[in-house]
Protein backbone atom coordinates (compact mmCIF):
# COMPACT_ATOMS: atom_id res chain seq x y z
CA UNK A 1 0.00 0.00 0.00
CA UNK A 2 2.71 2.42 1.02
CA UNK A 3 5.35 0.52 -0.84
CA UNK A 4 5.26 3.06 -3.65
CA UNK A 5 7.01 5.70 -1.56
CA UNK A 6 10.61 5.52 -2.68
CA UNK A 7 11.84 8.67 -0.95
CA UNK A 8 14.97 7.85 1.02
CA UNK A 9 15.06 4.26 -0.13
CA UNK A 10 18.12 2.44 -1.44
CA UNK A 11 17.90 0.51 -4.69
CA UNK A 12 20.30 -2.42 -4.76
CA UNK A 13 22.06 -2.82 -8.09
CA UNK A 14 25.47 -2.16 -9.61
CA UNK A 15 26.21 1.03 -11.56
CA UNK A 16 28.75 3.80 -11.91
CA UNK A 17 26.63 5.97 -9.64
CA UNK A 18 26.44 3.26 -7.00
CA UNK A 19 30.22 2.95 -6.96
CA UNK A 20 30.94 6.70 -6.73
CA UNK A 21 32.20 8.10 -3.45
CA UNK A 22 29.21 9.32 -1.42
CA UNK A 23 30.86 12.72 -1.00
CA UNK A 24 30.75 13.22 -4.76
CA UNK A 25 27.07 12.32 -4.81
CA UNK A 26 26.21 14.67 -1.96
CA UNK A 27 28.11 17.55 -3.54
CA UNK A 28 26.62 16.60 -6.90
CA UNK A 29 23.10 16.71 -5.52
CA UNK A 30 23.71 20.08 -3.90
CA UNK A 31 25.18 21.44 -7.13
CA UNK A 32 22.22 20.09 -9.06
CA UNK A 33 19.72 21.68 -6.68
CA UNK A 34 21.60 24.98 -6.81
CA UNK A 35 21.67 24.79 -10.59
CA UNK A 36 17.89 24.52 -10.68
CA UNK A 37 17.70 27.89 -9.00
CA UNK A 38 20.38 29.37 -11.24
CA UNK A 39 18.49 28.36 -14.37
CA UNK A 40 16.11 31.02 -15.62
CA UNK A 41 15.45 29.99 -19.19
CA UNK A 42 14.14 26.97 -21.09
CA UNK A 43 17.71 26.37 -22.18
CA UNK A 44 18.85 26.09 -18.55
CA UNK A 45 16.06 23.67 -17.68
CA UNK A 46 16.78 21.74 -20.85
CA UNK A 47 20.41 21.29 -19.84
CA UNK A 48 19.31 20.23 -16.34
CA UNK A 49 16.84 17.75 -17.83
CA UNK A 50 19.50 16.22 -20.05
CA UNK A 51 21.90 16.01 -17.10
CA UNK A 52 19.24 14.35 -14.97
CA UNK A 53 18.27 11.93 -17.74
CA UNK A 54 21.88 10.87 -18.20
CA UNK A 55 22.23 10.33 -14.45
CA UNK A 56 19.06 8.21 -14.33
CA UNK A 57 20.37 6.17 -17.24
CA UNK A 58 23.72 5.71 -15.49
CA UNK A 59 22.10 4.71 -12.20
CA UNK A 60 20.47 1.53 -13.60
CA UNK A 61 17.47 2.29 -11.40
CA UNK A 62 14.28 1.61 -13.39
CA UNK A 63 12.58 4.85 -14.36
CA UNK A 64 9.16 3.66 -13.17
CA UNK A 65 10.68 3.07 -9.77
CA UNK A 66 11.84 6.68 -9.53
CA UNK A 67 8.52 7.97 -10.84
CA UNK A 68 6.63 5.99 -8.21
CA UNK A 69 8.37 8.10 -5.58
CA UNK A 70 6.81 11.18 -7.15
CA UNK A 71 3.34 10.18 -5.99
CA UNK A 72 4.33 11.26 -2.50
CA UNK A 73 4.82 14.88 -3.54
CA UNK A 74 1.99 15.02 -6.07
CA UNK A 75 -0.34 17.02 -3.80
CA UNK A 76 2.42 19.42 -2.83
CA UNK A 77 3.22 19.89 -6.50
CA UNK A 78 -0.38 20.64 -7.43
CA UNK A 79 -0.85 23.09 -4.56
CA UNK A 80 2.40 24.92 -5.30
CA UNK A 81 1.58 25.24 -8.97
CA UNK A 82 -1.98 26.33 -8.28
CA UNK A 83 -0.95 29.07 -5.86
CA UNK A 84 1.67 30.39 -8.24
CA UNK A 85 -0.74 30.22 -11.13
CA UNK A 86 -3.56 32.09 -9.41
CA UNK A 87 -1.84 34.54 -7.10
CA UNK A 88 0.91 36.07 -9.20
CA UNK A 89 0.13 39.66 -10.24
CA UNK A 90 0.91 40.76 -13.78
CA UNK A 91 -0.47 40.76 -17.29
CA UNK A 92 -3.81 38.99 -17.21
CA UNK A 93 -4.47 36.17 -19.67
CA UNK A 94 -7.93 35.17 -18.44
CA UNK A 95 -9.69 35.05 -15.13
CA UNK A 96 -11.60 32.50 -13.09
CA UNK A 97 -14.18 33.99 -10.75
CA UNK A 98 -12.17 36.58 -8.75
CA UNK A 99 -8.75 35.10 -9.45
CA UNK A 100 -6.80 36.01 -12.49
CA UNK A 101 -4.34 33.88 -14.36
CA UNK A 102 -1.42 35.96 -15.55
CA UNK A 103 1.41 35.43 -17.96
CA UNK A 104 3.83 35.73 -15.08
CA UNK A 105 1.77 33.27 -13.07
CA UNK A 106 1.91 30.60 -15.76
CA UNK A 107 5.62 31.14 -16.11
CA UNK A 108 6.22 30.91 -12.37
CA UNK A 109 3.98 27.88 -11.92
CA UNK A 110 5.76 26.00 -14.70
CA UNK A 111 9.14 26.94 -13.29
CA UNK A 112 8.20 25.90 -9.75
CA UNK A 113 6.73 22.64 -10.99
CA UNK A 114 9.82 21.74 -12.97
CA UNK A 115 12.08 22.75 -10.11
CA UNK A 116 10.18 20.71 -7.58
CA UNK A 117 10.02 17.59 -9.76
CA UNK A 118 13.71 17.80 -10.70
CA UNK A 119 14.69 18.51 -7.12
CA UNK A 120 12.90 15.45 -5.80
CA UNK A 121 14.10 13.16 -8.59
CA UNK A 122 17.65 14.47 -8.16
CA UNK A 123 17.78 13.92 -4.43
CA UNK A 124 16.00 10.58 -4.53
CA UNK A 125 18.55 9.49 -7.11
CA UNK A 126 21.22 10.13 -4.48
CA UNK A 127 19.48 8.04 -1.82
CA UNK A 128 18.57 5.35 -4.34
CA UNK A 129 22.19 4.84 -5.29
CA UNK A 130 23.82 5.30 -1.87
CA UNK A 131 23.36 3.11 1.17
CA UNK A 132 22.36 5.08 4.28
CA UNK A 133 25.65 4.09 5.91
CA UNK A 134 27.64 5.45 3.01
CA UNK A 135 25.56 8.58 2.89
CA UNK A 136 26.20 9.48 6.50
CA UNK A 137 29.87 8.56 6.26
CA UNK A 138 30.11 10.96 3.36
CA UNK A 139 28.22 13.66 5.20
CA UNK A 140 30.35 13.27 8.30
CA UNK A 141 33.52 13.53 6.23
CA UNK A 142 32.25 16.55 4.29
CA UNK A 143 31.26 18.39 7.46
CA UNK A 144 34.48 17.37 9.21
CA UNK A 145 36.02 20.86 9.08
CA UNK A 146 33.07 22.22 11.09
CA UNK A 147 34.27 20.28 14.14
CA UNK A 148 36.70 23.11 14.74
CA UNK A 149 33.67 25.33 15.35
CA UNK A 150 32.31 22.78 17.87
CA UNK A 151 29.54 21.67 15.55
CA UNK A 152 28.55 18.16 16.71
CA UNK A 153 29.24 16.66 13.28
CA UNK A 154 29.27 13.04 14.35
CA UNK A 155 26.03 13.38 16.27
CA UNK A 156 24.31 15.07 13.34
CA UNK A 157 25.52 12.31 11.01
CA UNK A 158 24.37 9.63 13.44
CA UNK A 159 20.94 11.21 13.81
CA UNK A 160 20.63 11.39 10.06
CA UNK A 161 21.68 7.77 9.69
CA UNK A 162 19.06 6.71 12.19
CA UNK A 163 16.39 8.87 10.61
CA UNK A 164 17.12 7.47 7.16
CA UNK A 165 17.26 3.93 8.47
CA UNK A 166 13.89 4.39 10.14
CA UNK A 167 12.03 5.67 7.10
CA UNK A 168 11.46 2.21 5.59
CA UNK A 169 10.85 0.69 9.03
CA UNK A 170 8.20 3.22 9.94
CA UNK A 171 6.64 2.95 6.50
CA UNK A 172 6.39 -0.79 6.92
CA UNK A 173 4.93 -0.25 10.37
CA UNK A 174 2.40 2.23 8.98
CA UNK A 175 1.45 -0.29 6.33
CA UNK A 176 0.97 -2.98 8.95
CA UNK A 177 -1.11 -0.82 11.29
CA UNK A 178 -3.17 0.44 8.38
CA UNK A 179 -3.92 -3.11 7.32
CA UNK A 180 -4.77 -4.12 10.86
CA UNK A 181 -7.22 -1.23 11.17
CA UNK A 182 -8.69 -1.89 7.73
CA UNK A 183 -9.25 -5.46 8.89
CA UNK A 184 -11.22 -3.93 11.76
CA UNK A 185 -13.35 -2.03 9.27
CA UNK A 186 -11.53 1.32 9.27
CA UNK A 187 -11.73 3.34 6.05
CA UNK A 188 -8.89 5.67 5.13
CA UNK A 189 -10.08 6.60 1.67
CA UNK A 190 -13.66 7.79 2.10
CA UNK A 191 -15.46 10.79 3.53
CA UNK A 192 -14.64 14.47 3.62
CA UNK A 193 -11.50 16.06 4.92
CA UNK A 194 -12.67 15.93 8.55
CA UNK A 195 -13.61 12.25 8.28
CA UNK A 196 -10.22 11.55 6.77
CA UNK A 197 -8.43 13.43 9.53
CA UNK A 198 -10.42 11.56 12.16
CA UNK A 199 -9.60 8.27 10.43
CA UNK A 200 -5.91 9.03 10.98
CA UNK A 201 -6.17 8.71 14.76
CA UNK A 202 -6.25 4.87 14.80
CA UNK A 203 -3.19 5.00 12.57
CA UNK A 204 -1.15 7.76 14.17
CA UNK A 205 -1.51 6.83 17.83
CA UNK A 206 -0.11 3.29 17.38
CA UNK A 207 2.53 4.66 15.01
CA UNK A 208 3.81 7.19 17.54
CA UNK A 209 3.82 4.61 20.30
CA UNK A 210 5.78 2.25 18.10
CA UNK A 211 8.24 4.97 17.11
CA UNK A 212 8.93 5.75 20.76
CA UNK A 213 9.26 2.06 21.59
CA UNK A 214 11.73 1.56 18.75
CA UNK A 215 13.72 4.63 19.72
CA UNK A 216 13.97 3.32 23.28
CA UNK A 217 15.03 -0.12 22.09
CA UNK A 218 17.64 1.35 19.79
CA UNK A 219 19.11 3.58 22.50
CA UNK A 220 19.31 0.56 24.79
CA UNK A 221 21.00 -1.56 22.11
CA UNK A 222 23.50 1.20 21.36
CA UNK A 223 24.37 1.62 25.01
CA UNK A 224 24.70 -2.12 25.48
CA UNK A 225 27.37 -2.03 22.78
CA UNK A 226 29.20 0.80 24.55
CA UNK A 227 28.37 3.51 22.05
CA UNK A 228 29.66 6.78 23.42
CA UNK A 229 29.72 9.19 20.51
CA UNK A 230 32.22 9.73 17.73
CA UNK A 231 35.33 10.23 19.87
CA UNK A 232 38.04 7.78 18.79
CA UNK A 233 35.73 5.81 16.53
CA UNK A 234 37.34 4.20 13.49
CA UNK A 235 35.76 3.00 10.28
CA UNK A 236 35.79 -0.46 8.76
CA UNK A 237 35.75 1.00 5.25
CA UNK A 238 37.27 4.50 5.38
CA UNK A 239 36.25 6.63 2.43
CA UNK A 240 38.92 7.20 -0.20
CA UNK A 241 38.63 9.07 -3.48
CA UNK A 242 39.42 7.23 -6.69
CA UNK A 243 40.03 8.33 -10.24
CA UNK A 244 36.37 8.12 -11.23
CA UNK A 245 35.50 10.47 -8.37
CA UNK A 246 37.88 13.10 -9.68
CA UNK A 247 36.33 12.71 -13.12
CA UNK A 248 32.86 13.08 -11.61
CA UNK A 249 33.86 16.33 -9.87
CA UNK A 250 35.21 17.61 -13.17
CA UNK A 251 31.94 16.81 -14.95
CA UNK A 252 30.01 18.48 -12.16
CA UNK A 253 32.08 21.66 -12.47
CA UNK A 254 31.51 21.62 -16.20
CA UNK A 255 27.76 21.20 -15.71
CA UNK A 256 27.63 24.06 -13.22
CA UNK A 257 29.57 26.29 -15.61
CA UNK A 258 27.15 25.50 -18.44
CA UNK A 259 24.18 26.26 -16.19
CA UNK A 260 25.63 29.63 -15.16
CA UNK A 261 26.43 30.47 -18.76
CA UNK A 262 22.89 29.56 -19.79
CA UNK A 263 21.68 32.58 -17.84
CA UNK A 264 23.47 34.88 -20.24
CA UNK A 265 22.31 33.26 -23.45
CA UNK A 266 19.40 35.31 -24.74
CA UNK A 267 16.48 33.06 -25.61
CA UNK A 268 13.20 34.23 -27.04
CA UNK A 269 9.83 32.75 -26.26
CA UNK A 270 7.40 33.04 -23.44
CA UNK A 271 9.65 32.11 -20.55
Amino acid sequence: MLREITLGQYYQTDSVLHRLDPRVKIVGTLVFIASLFIANSPLGYGVAAVFLAVMIKLSHVPFQFIIRGMKAIFMLLIITMLFNLLLTPGEEVFHLWRLSVTKEGIRLALMMGIRLVFLVIGSSLMTLTTTPNNLTDGLEKLMGPLKVLHVPVHEIAMMMAIALRFIPILLEETDKIMKAQIARGARFDTGGIIDKARAMVPLLVPLFISAFRRAGDLAMAMEARCYHGGEGRTKMHPLAYEKRDALAYLLLALYLAVMILSRFVPVGGML
Binding site: I177, K179, A180, A183, V201, V205, P206
Partner: peptide, 9 residues
Protein backbone atom coordinates in the same frame (compact mmCIF):
# COMPACT_ATOMS: atom_id res chain seq x y z
CA UNK B 1 -2.33 -9.67 12.84
CA UNK B 2 0.96 -10.54 14.46
CA UNK B 3 1.48 -8.48 17.60
CA UNK B 4 -2.09 -7.16 17.39
CA UNK B 5 -1.56 -5.11 20.55
CA UNK B 6 0.42 -2.68 18.35
CA UNK B 7 -2.86 -1.53 16.81
CA UNK B 8 -4.49 -0.40 20.07
CA UNK B 9 -5.15 3.33 20.13
Amino acid sequence: FQYPEHQLF
